[in-house]
Design a binder for these strands. Structure first.
Length: 572
DNA sequence: GCCGTTTTCGGCCCGACTGTTTTCAGTCG
């Protein structure tokens, strides 16, 4: 948790320095430090204990000292000095769309405005409009920005954003003159939440397409409408509105634009550095040597020309993908998945029967499906008694015997109880083909306890995988305070797979933990935890998350044949 | 403030749109 606190403080230092008008590169260095600490797989205190802080890319002597000061004293001098100079409210003003550091500084210095309320009053009194650099229109925009802030849900979960984007891409593709349309941005990279949607389309007449875009019936507001770019907001089921940007580009630049707008911003900066070293320039129109275009029609051509392999969107996070370019792993794809090893039926809290789930899995082309109901302590989820579970297993096997082309595994999702014991005795678990162990209760226990529980479950020879290992629910419930290094080491040692739960509400393990687990030698299983046939589709989000953790197919159990899978189960 | 198959100093990615401006600053991605 200290990682996130430190990241927030570094971000705050960057924001405050920006208001002060400090050197941009110094500001960016703090932002970079914030990001790498936030994404660091392990506890920054452990890295500090090994005196390896400056080995983290983006952490130099200065930030390392500040991290050490924070670990020792719980404060950072520069941060405190900035906070005593600038009121806290300025950071809130900075979150208003359209209001940046320069304008916030002007509002503070000239009108003593430090809160949104004071800003409203100053606007009402006509003071803001008179400030140099402000005017009637900017005042209007600030008021709209305040309104957007109040109605915005913040970042939107990938699963929700995906559906909105699919519909909009279809709309845009249908505009006259549009040859193709695609979603870019963090959605294409598969980030677990997205801030806004970035769409891209190929067309000759930019202004006409932008006009059609801003006239979409579900456009709530029009934020911008230029010759090649439009921005609107649309209804967001998560609450409020979500911003959607559209860029219109010609065919010869489509790949460059797709690359550019897919980001991440940090990945693009690295890529431009590679281009600059060769004396070239890379922008959203293409890769150029002087005026001569070297690439831009498609993304792959740009990477190739720069001497790099095609880097999949999920890897473009500036997490070492350029440095590793010579030996990038071959990432798992949706087509590699041969089965789902965590689903429920009406026997516990699912909505479909064994037969229905099996038919849906077969329709997806799966070779196997594990039915894993809840265990008896999960009363709310209608968990099964040991007797009911035995009879259910018999039924699963009976149904499996009648099916052609797909094998059903009689499994269970057994609760790991608060004391680390499992919800069924070994004798019951021994009679099953596949056992997922999950924590559903006492998730707020201290680190030592939740870690010991998880490890105890893995040490049971009948447990084959740990379900949704962190227990988080995106935006709703925090992850358990696990000692991840200990968990990964135990998973590798005991030969227990860790689940990448594909439900977009969970995405658990998350991307950085997937990568860390793989480095520790763990095996993974991508499962939907589907409670209905249509939820089997969510496997897609699990695959994306695994790809973001650089997962190759051979380390993911459910890309294997059933024979390989059974061999691995027996080995445990 | 970081970083180094050119460097321990001098770089650090690039462009669109808007609004307030008479040529550009601020914001955003």
């Amino acid at each position: 948790m200290v990682n996130q606190e430190l990241a927030r403080i570094f971000e705050e230092i960057a924001d405050l320095l920006e208001i002060e008008g400090a050197d941009v590169f110094r500001i960016n260095a703090y932002r970079k430090a914030a990001r790498v600490i936030d994404e660091l797989g392990e506890d920054v205190a452990d890295v500090a204990a090994r005196s390896e802080l400056t080995k983290i890319p983006g952490i130099g002597k200065g930030t390392a000292e500040k991290i050490q000061q924070y670990l020792a004293e719980g404060r950072i001098t520069v941060h405190q000095e900035l906070r005593s100079k600038l009121p806290e409210g300025l950071l809130t003003l900075l979150t208003i769309p359209g209001l940046g550091p320069k304008k916030v500084a002007a509002l503070y210095k000239q009108l003593k405005v430090t809160t949104i309320e004071q800003l409203r009053s100053a606007i009402a009194a006509g003071q803001v409009e008179k400030l140099p650099g402000f005017g009637a229109k900017s005042v209007e925009n600030i008021l709209e920005g305040i309104g957007f802030l109040a109605s915005s849900a913040g970042r939107t979960p990938l699963g929700i954003a995906w559906e909105i984007a699919e519909n909009l891409v279809r709309d845009v593709a249908a505009f006259p003159g549009v040859r193709r349309a695609e979603a870019a941005g963090s959605l294409r990279r598969g980030r677990e939440t997205v801030g806004d949607l970035d769409l891209l389309c190929e067309a000759k007449n930019g202004p006409a397409v932008v006009k059609a875009f801003t006239k979409l019936p579900h456009a709530k507001k029009v934020l911008a409408a230029g010759d090649t770019k439009g921005a609107i907001t649309v209804f967001n089921p998560e609450g409020g509105e979500i911003q959607v940007d559209l860029r219109v580009v010609p065919a010869e630049s489509f790949g460059a634009a797709l690359q550019y707008f897919t980001g991440s911003k940090e990945h693009n900066v690295r890529l431009r550095e590679v281009a600059a070293k060769k004396g070239w320039k890379l922008n959203e129109y293409g890769l150029f040597e002087g005026d001569r275009m070297l690439a831009g029609k498609d993304e792959a051509g740009i990477y190739k020309k720069l001497g790099l392999p095609f880097i999949p969107p999920e890897m473009r996070e500036d997490r070492g993908e350029l440095a590793a370019a010579k030996k990038l792993p071959k990432l798992v794809t949706l087509a590699d998945i041969r089965g789902d090893l965590h689903v429920h039926t009406t026997a516990s809290d699912g909505r479909n029967t064994i037969e229905e789930m099996a038919a849906a899995a077969k329709a997806r082309g799966y070779c196997y499906l594990a039915i894993t109901e809840h265990s008896k302590s999960s009363v709310i989820a209608n968990g099964l008694s040991a007797d009911k579970l035995r009879r259910h297993a018999d039924k699963i096997r009976a149904v499996s015997g009648k099916l052609k082309g797909i094998t059903l595994l009689a499994g269970v999702e057994v609760d790991v109880l608060a004391d680390g014991t499992l919800d069924y005795p070994d004798s019951v678990l021994a009679g099953l083909d596949w056992v997922v162990a999950s924590i559903h209760s006492a998730q707020g226990q201290e680190r030592k306890k939740v870690t010991a529980r998880t490890i105890a479950a893995m040490e049971n020879p009948h447990v084959h995988a740990i379900g949704h290992p962190s227990g988080r629910l995106l935006g709703k419930r925090d992850a358990m305070d696990l000692d991840w290094e200990a968990v990964f080491a135990a998973a590798a040692r005991t030969g227990t797979a860790l689940e990448v739960n594909a439900s977009w509400q969970r995405l658990d393990l998350k991307d950085v933990h997937v990568r860390q687990a793989l480095e520790a030698g763990c095996h993974l299983v991508i499962s939907t935890d589907a409670h209905a046939t249509d939820q089997l589709d969510q496997i897609h989000f699990g695959v994306i998350t695994a790809r973001r953790g650089w997962a190759p197919p051979d380390r993911i159990l459910n890309t294997w044949t059933i024979a390989q899978l059974r061999k691995w189960i027996t080995a445990k």
